[in-house]
């Protein structure tokens, strides 16, 4: 009886966490190169089983421990490409990432809205990280002239090749950690420069968030939350009835 209360509570907590993930997706509906997160829910084992104390020792343990947000999965889907015409905007059509460096460490991003700073580095909008070459050093572009960036990343100025944007691809979703600021960090996965996709110069990749999908997920999360809360209320009432029964004069 009381155990059910914990199950309902775990369900409500999980739905609340799911809603937070959805709210963050919606908040980033206009963020360049943003990839939406999918909240993955898993049935919990009973606490005793989770702690490794018993393995399904009693029928109650076999009930499990409700539900938990087991992981968030960043969906690596292609976002739509919007033409902006800005000379240092780039969008990736494919699975690659732009390597960017803060001077010490290389990070990865899909947000290709760069600005050329006074030393010729291509800076991310916050100005702290720069588009990097294969050695992790900032790519330098000439300070003057008509820049054009080919689909394979070759940078040319007034027709003369001056460098190359080398995209990087990661096979496993777990190879990258999402850091915020449109950045991902490499967790030591195998980076490859094959099948990275093509660069579209003068365009940006828009957020992959689908408003309709997020809204329906949000409705489900909030109804799931309500149902769990309703169950808590019902179990509370049953307990109250039980206590009232015990008080009846014999």
């Amino acid at each position: 009886m009381i155990y059910g209360l914990y199950l309902s509570a775990s369900g409500a907590l999980m739905e609340s966490a799911r809603h937070s993930v959805i709210a963050n997706n919606i908040a980033n509906v206009n963020t360049t190169g943003f990839k939406d997160d999918l909240a993955i829910v898993r049935a919990r084992d009973a606490e005793a089983t989770e702690e490794g104390l018993f393995s399904y020792a009693t029928p109650m343990d076999a009930l499990g421990g409700g539900a938990i947000l087991s992981q968030t999965y960043t969906r690596r889907v292609q976002g739509a490409i919007q033409v902006t015409g800005n000379p240092f905007d780039m969008a990736i059509d494919g699975e690659g990432f732009f390597p960017v460096t803060d001077g010490a460490q290389v990070f990865y991003t899909r947000a290709g809205s760069f600005t050329r700073d006074t030393s010729g580095r291509l800076a991310m909008p916050d100005g702290t990280r720069f588009l990097a070459d294969t050695d992790g050093r900032p790519i330098l572009v000439p300070l003057e002239g008509e820049i054009s960036i080919a689909g394979d990343g070759t940078i040319s100025v007034d027709g003369a090749v001056t460098g190359k944007v080398e995209l990087v691809r990661f096979d496993e979703p777990g190879d990258l950690d999402k850091l915020g600021g449109n950045l991902w960090a490499d967790r030591g996965g195998a980076a490859s420069t094959a099948n990275v996709g093509r660069i579209k110069h003068g365009a940006l990749e828009i957020s992959s968030v689908s408003p309709a999908a997020e809204m329906s997920k949000m409705i489900l999360a909030s109804r799931g939350y309500e149902m769990n809360m309703q169950l808590i209320r019902m179990q509370d009432q049953t307990l109250a009835d039980l206590v009232a029964l015990a008080r009846l004069p014999m």
């Binding site: 966490a17 993930v21 980033n28 997160d37 992981q71 777990g174």
Partner: peptide, 12 residues
């Protein structure tokens, strides 16, 4: 091992 992390973003 969980194949990916569990993160909740804090907005934009």
């Amino acid at each position: 091992r969980t194949p990916s992390e569990t993160v909740v973003g804090l907005g934009v």
